[in-house]
Amino acid sequence: MKLNQIRMVLFGSFLLVIALFGFRLQIEPFEPYDQKIPNTDLSFSMVPIPAGAFIMGTPSEQKGHQVDEAPQRKIQLDAFWMGTHEVTWDLFELFLDKNLEIGISTKPLSHQVDGLSRPSTPYLDMTFGMGKASKPAVGMTQYGAIQYCRWLYLKTGIFYRLPTEAEWEYAARAGSNESYFFGSDANLINDYAIYIENSNKTTSTIGSKAPNPWGLYDMLGNVMEWTGDFYAAYEDDSNQNINPKVVSEQLYPQVLRGGHYESEAEDLRVGRRFASDPVWKQLDPQIPKSRWWFPEAPFVGMRVVRPLKVPSESEIHAYFDRVPPADF
C-alpha cells in the first residue's frame, strides 16, 4: 500500500473516531435530564455537577464547628450528575416490593431484575406514620441504599451510586465557602430547609423549599442522606485529595450528611458530618440483624449520583457486590 493510501486510511479512521465520539456527546450531553424507569410512568431528575475544586471542611471559628470537620483541605473532583431530590417512596418501593414492580410494569421483568436480592419485609411501618406521597423513603441501611442503586442499574443500564462524602459536600456548597450554600445567616434557613423549627417533627414533600444554586432540593434538612464513605478523621494528604473515598471492612460508622427534619440550624451546615450508629437497630429482633433496615432511623434517606466518567464493568460489580459484615 502506497504512503498516500495509508495516510488516507488513517485519516478516515480518525474522522470515524471523531464522528463516533461526537455522536456519543450528542446522545449523552452533560446537562439536566429525567431518568425514566423503563416500562413505568415513574422518573426522577438529575442535574450536572461540574468538575472542580473546593475547600472541604470548616474553619474552627465557624459557629457550630465540630472537631471532625477539620483540617480543611483542597479537594479536586471529576464531574457527575446528582439527583435533584431525595429518593421517594414510589421509586424505592418498586425495588422493595417485587409484586408491586410486576404490577406496575407494562412488560415482564428481565431475568436479572426478577432474580435481584431485595430487602427483607420490615416488621413495622417503615414510614413511621409520616406518609409516602412524594415523601423521601427512609430507614434503609447504607447496604440497602447501594442495592437500590443496583436495581436502578439493572433497570436502566446506567450506573447510579451513592455520592462520596466529598461529592456530597461539593454539591451542597455549590460554590459557597460559608456555613450554608446561601451564606452564613441562619435566619434565612427557613427558605431552604425542613428542620426542627418548621417540620412539625415529620418529613415533608420533596422540593417544598428553594433549591441551592445548582438546582438541588433538600440538601439541608428533611432527611439525612447516605454517602458511600466510611466515617474517619480528615487527613490533609495531597495524595488523597483527588476524588477521595474512604472504604473500610467495618460496618460502623458510615457517613451521612445534610441533617434532617428534627435538626437544629447549626446541624444543617454544609460541612456537618454524621456517623451511622448500631443503636438504630436495637429494636430489630433478628440475629444477625437486618442488612436492610434501621427500625429506629426515620431520619435517614438517600440521593443518587451518576459519574460522568463511567467505571468499568468489573468496577461496577465490585461496588455492588461488597457484602457488609454480619451485624449482631
Rank of each mutant, 00 (worst) to 15 (best):
T40E: 06
Y143Q: 09
K36I: 08
E225C: 08
E61D: 06
H260T: 01
S263T: 01
T205N: 14
D114P: 01
G12H: 06
Q66R: 12
Y195T: 01
R269H: 08
K155Y: 15
E28V: 09
Q147L: 04
I104G: 12
P38K: 08
E167W: 12
F44E: 04
K2M: 09
P307V: 01
R73D: 05
E315C: 00
P122L: 13
A166Y: 05
M8C: 09
E262M: 05
P253L: 02
K132M: 06
S110L: 11
D78E: 04
L100W: 13
S184E: 06
R306C: 13
F14N: 03
M219N: 12
S199N: 00
T205W: 05
G115A: 15
V323N: 11
Q250H: 14
L152T: 02
G52C: 10
H111T: 08
G115E: 10
F159T: 08
M302L: 11
P311L: 07
A79P: 01
V113T: 12
R150V: 10
I55A: 05
L42M: 15
Y123I: 04
D125H: 11
V304S: 06
P119I: 01
E165W: 04
L251R: 14
G139Y: 00
A232R: 12
R272W: 00
G271D: 02
S290I: 01
Q26E: 10
P136C: 04
D97A: 12
A79D: 00
G131T: 07
S204I: 13
F181N: 08
G57W: 03
D125I: 09
S176H: 04
F21A: 14
F95A: 06
